[in-house]
């Protein structure tokens, strides 16, 4: 039986109906057309569906949509300011921190959560934090370098 659900998505209030077993990923992609978060494994392993829940990274594929009532969700769509890219997006783009790009929405949200909590992470901290985001093209080194570059202030807002 569907229930009403209200939450804030990328700064805007959303009111929808969600089924009890519907995940946040399903809701975002199928109902709201927010297709930044990708469906990779649907069991929490790959990380490409990562979004921020009240600023903390979560797997949208493991989050029952109804549990985000009253919370704030940020997806990759909420990173850029209009046409102005977020520093992480600029750094990933300029440094080629992806090939096919399927993992990028999750990589960016995990990286944002890291830098929000720890603006100057060590390489080790970056690697630990990003270890839950898989890139089958193998762009890990460029991802780490892009995050380091943003932390070093090479990409301003």
């Amino acid at each position: 039986m569907k229930e009403t659900l209200s939450f804030v998505l990328n700064g805007s209030p959303v009111d929808v109906l969600a089924a009890p077993t519907e995940t946040l990923l399903d809701l975002l992609r199928e109902q709201l057309g927010v297709t930044g978060p990708k469906r990779g494994c649907d069991e929490g392993d790959c990380g490409t569906c990562t979004v921020l829940l009240d600023g903390q990274p979560v797997r949208s594929c493991l989050t029952i949509a109804l549990t985000v009532a009253g919370k704030e969700i940020t997806t990759v769509e909420g990173l850029a300011d209009g046409r102005k890219l977020h520093p992480l997006q600029k750094a990933f783009h300029e440094r080629g921190a992806f090939q096919c790009g399927f993992c990028t929405p999750g990589m960016l949200m995990s990286a944002k959560a890291l830098l929000d909590g720890n603006p100057n992470p060590t390489r080790r901290e970056i690697v630990d934090h990003m270890s839950g985001n898989l890139c089958r093209c193998g762009s890990y080194e460029e991802v780490i370098e892009a995050i380091q570059a943003v932390a070093n202030g090479e990409y301003k807002e």
Partner: peptide, 8 residues
């Protein structure tokens, strides 16, 4: 797990 698993 990983950071995003430990969050929830």
């Amino acid at each position: 797990g990983t950071v995003a698993i430990r969050t929830t």
